[in-house]
Design a protein around this nucleic acid. Structure first.
Lengths: 208, 208
DNA sequence: AAATGTGAAGACCTTCACAGCA
DNA sequence: TGCTGTGAAGGTCTTCACATTT
């Protein structure tokens, strides 16, 4: 019995909300309350959690700290995850400088670029390496996740190289949905797609 | 009979793929071929399109240029969409400098920040305005979509101001899912959530 | 009394399979 | 023949509703 992907995608949101509650000194929370904060039904929260175990106390609710710890463990957020950034153009540089990843055990430990002019520059304590070093670095630094921020035209090639190098998951910032070997996990960050779908709802065309 | 949101979210991907085909000189495409390129079943593509009309030719397939035009019209991408960026910290500045929005009729025409030190600076041809000018500028420049890139602690307040100012859709880059009046469209860009869900599939915990 | 955990029901989305048309 | 458009079937996810537990 495998867990639906939508459920997995919600777990990080639960953790975030629970962290907020903990910061406000709240020790126990019911699915009712969590649901209100997250705009979800209480039943959905209980059902989601039930895929993994029985974490609540009947009549009481969930112990906030305990549930955080369990969810972090389920997602593997108790571990350290080393990241590589591929492509240090404007976007790649912004990603490397962005401080928001670190809190949850993610750390950018390597950066690569195919452009000789970029190779060797230092960003946020990291020295940009040539693509030729990919396999070696990924092995030596135990990197399983890559962030891809290369031009769209290069996505397919880069994804191929990453797969060969043993990368297991890709956070893809390019405006493409690359075909991948299907044991490789991919998540696309694509603000343009988001904008293009929002306009439908603002558009007079819509007749519903 | 209203169209499922998942369908709307796929339309921009269809357009992107069709554009690629057009660039390669392909004039006609079957749902079979499109499906292969997009890793979808042909049936899904046909069903999705059928919500909006009958765009294909039986025995032949779809005329690429015609289908692009229809889909762009459905999504309102034939129109010009003016955007405001709220928050010109590191992230906001990167967004304003990012050239990827323009191709599809989106244009950043205003930027705001609550920090007096940021107000007045010029970025990509835009002068940063104080939050007090929000309502006036949004009205004058006919802005319906805002991109929010403020610190997480300010999201709720900013979203409230935007709603009051008449904004209809928000592309939210903050790591929060704000509660909003439900006629306001929101899409969240949240790379941390994406990373945190990917680790589940890399994690030894998983037993399926 | 209050809230969980969960089978069952319901809603929603995807895929099938074929009639109909070029 | 080849492919669309679409009811019907199938599958997946969400919600209900209640037995169970503290």
């Amino acid at each position: 019995m495998s867990v639906p992907e939508v459920v997995i995608n919600r777990l990080p949101q639960y953790i975030r909300c629970l962290n907020d509650l903990a910061d406000n000194g709240i020790n126990v929370v019911s699915s009712q309350h969590l649901g209100k904060a997250l705009l979800m039904t209480p039943a959905q929260i209980r059902k989601d959690l039930s895929y993994f175990g029985r974490f609540g106390k009947q009549g009481r609710g969930y112990l906030v700290q305990y549930l955080i710890a369990e969810l972090r463990h389920i997602l593997g957020l108790n571990l350290q995850w080393n990241l590589a950034v591929i492509g240090v153009g404007r976007l790649g540089l912004a990603i490397i400088s962005y401080p928001g990843f670190a809190p949850d055990g993610f750390q950018i430990v390597a950066a690569f670029d195919s452009d000789p002019k970029q190779v060797g520059i230092r960003v946020g304590g990291i020295k940009v390496k040539p693509m030729e070093n990919l396999n070696e670095t990924i092995r030596d630094k135990d990197i399983k996740i890559a962030i891809v921020a290369v031009p769209a035209t290069q996505t397919a090639k880069v994804v191929g190289l990453l797969a060969e190098a043993g990368i297991k998951a890709i956070l893809n910032y390019t405006p493409t949905s690359p075909q991948t070997p299907n044991d490789l996990i991919v998540r696309n960050i694509d603000p343009v797609l988001a904008l293009q779908s929002m306009t439908y709802y603002l558009n007079a065309y819509r007749q519903d």
